Computed example of a mutant assay.
Amino acid sequence: MKFRKSLTALVAAAALAAPLGLGASEAVAGTVAEAAAAPVASAAADNLPVYRDWYWTYGNCVGAGQQGVDRGHWDRYQCASGDVYWHLWTNR
């Protein structure tokens, strides 16, 4: 599933790059960097170093984060907004 998302993003970036006169590799590199930077920067600000998983909805992300707290797997969590998915970050 994650591979399909990456492949779709790469194809879309290449399709957008052609009319703009950009090389496909430059457009793909920019797209990948932007997608990776959003949740990383958000989690780094809150000092939550462990990336857990992605979720379609905010509610599912919060539910998974709270279950981890209830079970003693981690003490703090954050659901960071990505381009499409919500990303769960924890403190351990």
Rank of each mutant, 00 (worst) to 15 (best):
G59S: 15
V11I: 15
Y85I: 02
G59F: 04
E26V: 00
A24K: 10
E26I: 06
P49G: 13
D46M: 14
S81E: 09
P49T: 12
F3W: 07
T31K: 00
G82R: 08
L20D: 12
C61M: 08
S81D: 05
G72L: 05
W56Y: 08
D46V: 07
L20H: 00
A80C: 11
F3A: 01
G21I: 02
A14P: 06
W74L: 07
V84L: 06
R71P: 00
W54Y: 02
N91Y: 15
L16H: 00
H87M: 03
A80E: 13
W54E: 11
L10D: 04
G65S: 04
H73P: 08
A33S: 15
A29K: 07
G65N: 12
V28K: 03
A13V: 05
M1R: 11
P19K: 05
Y77M: 10
K5Y: 14
H73Q: 01
S25T: 12
P19R: 14
D53W: 11
Y58C: 04
N91V: 14
A44R: 15
G82V: 04
L22P: 13
R92C: 09
C79R: 08
G63N: 15
V28C: 08
D83H: 05
P49S: 11
D46W: 14
V40H: 02
G82M: 09
G59A: 15
Q67D: 15
D70K: 13
L48V: 12
A27L: 00
A80S: 09
L7D: 13
G72K: 10
A36R: 02
F3Q: 09
V40G: 00
L48T: 15
A24H: 01
A29R: 06
G63W: 03
E34W: 00
Q66W: 08
M1E: 07
P39C: 01
A41K: 11
A35I: 07
Y51A: 10
G82A: 01
G23M: 12
D83S: 08
K5Q: 14
R52A: 05
V62S: 06
H87R: 09
R4I: 13
K2F: 05
W56L: 06
A12K: 00
P49I: 14
T90C: 12
A64G: 06
A27K: 03
G21T: 01
T90R: 12
L88R: 14
Q66E: 14
T8L: 07
E34P: 00
Y85L: 03
N47F: 13
E26N: 11
A18P: 02
V69Q: 14
W89P: 11
A15L: 12
A45Q: 09
R52P: 01
Y85V: 11
Y55C: 00
A9S: 10
E34L: 01
W86Q: 08
V40R: 08
K2V: 03
L7M: 06
R71C: 00
T57Q: 14
H87S: 09
A37H: 01
A29C: 12
L88K: 11
A33G: 02
V11D: 14
A27R: 02
A38V: 01
W86H: 08
L16F: 02
L16T: 01
A33M: 06
G30F: 05
R92A: 05
D70H: 09
